[in-house]
Simulated scan of single mutants.
Amino acid sequence: MRILMVTSFPIVGQTDGTAMLAVQVFRALKRRGLDVAHAYLKLRRPWDVPFEGEFEGSPSFTLTPSRWISGMAEIRKRFPFDLVHAEHYGGATRALAACELHKWPMIYSIHSLLGEEVERDKLGRGLVFRTYRTLERRVCRYASGVVVLGHGVKKIVVEEKGVPSDRVAVIHPGVNLADYAPGPAAEIPGIGPEHKVVMYVGNIRDPNQGVPILLDSFPRVAEAVPEARCVLVGGPSEVGEAYRQQLGRFGDRLIVLTGKTPDEITALTRRADVLVHSRLACRENDSVQTKMAVYLASGRPIVATNYGDYQHLLGDTGAGLLTPVDSDALADGIIEVITDANLASRLAAATRPAAEEYICMDRNVDRYLALYETALRLGPRRRSSKAEATA
C-alpha cells in the first residue's frame, strides 16, 4: 500500500503540535513498511515554483495553488499512491479537486473542528471561513474515511456532517514511545532541586487551552506550597510576559520556555512534579490534543480538567486526577498531587499502560491501516442527485 500524505503546512523542520501529529503518523507508517510520500499544498507566495525535496528519506513535494491539481497528478505518475491521507481541513480542502477529478480515495484526518478555529475573531465569520466551510462539506461527502481525535468529534461528524459512523475512526494523537525512554531531566533556569514544578506544555495563547485558568489557580498553589514554581513550555514569549504581570507578587515564580524541540520537551517533562492541562469545556476541545500524548508518554503525574475524552484517557485508566473547569478546583488538585507522594506515584505508574493502549503510534498505525483497508474496499462516497439536492 502506498500513501500520499497531503498537508497545508510544511513538515520538514517543524515542531508545533499540528505538524508533529502528521509527522508521527508519517513515521509510524514507514516503520510498518509502507511507502509514504508527502505533498505540501502551499497557499502563500503562490508565485513560487513547485519544489521536490525529501523528508527523512521519502519524497516531499511542495506545490503552489496553480499546481494543486496537475502537480498531484504528476506525483501520481512518479509515485503511484493508493490513497490520499489529508491532514487537517487545510490539506483536505486543497486536495479535494484533484481527488474528485481522478476519483482517488481520500482519508480526512480532522485535527480540530473547522467552525471553532477559522476567523474566530470575526463577528459572523468572514469569506475565508465560509469558503473553508463549503469545501469541507464537500470533503465530508466525498471522503472514503475520516479520522477524529475524540469521541465528541465523531458524534459531530456523524450527526452534523453526515459521515456514516463506520467510516469514522477515533484515533487519539500518538507518539513513538521509544522516544520517551528514561533519561536525565533537563535543567530549568531558576529551578532547584527543592522546587515543585507545575508544568504546562503547548500553545500558551489560544483561549481553549485554558492557560489562564492555570494562572488563576497558581497563587493559591504558591501560598499552600511556597516551593512551587509554574513552568510554561511554549509560546509566544510576549504572552508569557503578560502572564507574569498578571501574577503580581507571584510573577517571579513563573518561568516561560519558548522554542523547544521535541527532544528538549521530553527532557523537560521529566522534571515536572505535575503536568497540567486546564482546558475549557468547549467544542474545540472535543479533539484530544497532541500534548496529552506527550503527557502520558512522559510518565509524570497529570492533573487535567474533566472534559470530553479526558475521562476516558485519564479518569478511567487512573493516569490522571480530573477536576472541574474551575481555578479553585484545579488548585486543589495540583496541591493534592504535589503534597501526596503516594498519589503522585499511583498516577505516574498508570500513565504507561494508558499510553500503550491509546497513544502508542505502533498500535495506532493498526487503526489507520484498518481504516485505509475499509476506504480502499468501499472507495470514495457517492451521493445520488436527489440526496445532493436535499443536502
Rank of each mutant, 00 (worst) to 15 (best):
A28Y: 06
A28E: 08
L127A: 14
R133W: 10
E100Y: 07
N306V: 02
D366T: 10
C230L: 14
A387Y: 05
P65R: 01
L378D: 11
A37F: 05
G115W: 07
A375P: 07
T62V: 15
G91R: 02
G162C: 06
V118C: 10
L275G: 01
L114M: 05
S345E: 13
A22W: 00
R141S: 10
L215D: 02
G174T: 09
E116H: 01
T323L: 06
V146I: 13
I171C: 11
V147H: 08
T7M: 08
D362C: 04
L149D: 11
L343F: 04
C230R: 02
R363P: 02
R141G: 09
S278F: 10
I191G: 09
I338V: 15
A73S: 12
R31K: 15
E388G: 04
L123Q: 07
K155E: 13
R300N: 10
L343G: 00
L378G: 12
S298H: 04
R383Q: 14
E116T: 14
M72L: 14
S385E: 15
V231D: 02
E119S: 03
L4D: 03
F51N: 12
L343N: 00
E117C: 09
T269R: 09
A28P: 05
V294Q: 14
R244F: 12
Y89D: 09
